[in-house]
Amino acid sequence: MHPFFFGSAEQRLFGVYHPAASSHPRDAGVVLCHPFGHEYVRVYRGFRTLAIRLAEAGFHVLRFDYYACGDSSGDSAEGSVRQWISDICTAVEELRDMAGVSKVSLVGLRFGATLAAFAAQKCDDLDHLILWDPVANGGRFLDELRLVQKAWLRTKPGPSGAAAREPRDELIGFPLPEQLVAEFQTMDVAEIREWRARHATVLASSEGDESTEWRERLKTLPIASTYRCVPGAGDWTSASSVHHALLAHEMMHAITALLGETGARLGIHVS
């Protein structure tokens, strides 16, 4: 595990590189794309576990913080969807340079999955796009999280009154400036015209309207696609889970197995 900073001098990104286990390295890398806001905090340790498992399975893995997130440079209020998509492409190139791999897959969670799907239009030669509980529409996602915030704030100290209870410019501890809201509202996976990865998989932690939508959407994609439900992880809309760490071992296992299977199918063999 090698922590480092990469990217431009003005917008340094914090990353952790997990080289493949030396006994069976693959010519394949995986970039992990974190979710947004408090969901990032919930899943950080879980992503580390996923990275370790993938490295043990022979993949070179890079997990990183977007600009203005985590340990990367920038104030939280400077976050930008366009920048985060660009950051994913930067991370893909960084991993190719560091590991010397020719094939790279993206694994994204929640809004990180949405960012990964958009980034896949810009990154060259991606293998597998794994979307874990992906957010289909950014505006709907914000509405959903605002409801979570509202329910959560009801249980906390502070002045009463609707205005105090429902801050519009922040979301469960993270700034939400108008410009960022506007960007979220433009994000709809239905608008993606070019799916450039070789394979896309949606992993859902529960069945519902959104997962049904995804199943239908996958049928229309011009690339090979898979849908799987892995019950257990998630609980994204519960106010009581806002600060609970999410380890999601079943989902980690499913992702590791899935990438291994796809690698074999695509001719990526253990050397």
Binding site: V41, S76, H243
Partner: peptide
């Protein structure tokens, strides 16, 4: 608690 070094809501970074 279990929150990594960035702190709750990235508080430790700021």
């Amino acid at each position: 608690g279990l929150i990594h070094r960035v702190g709750p809501s990235r508080l430790y970074v700021r």
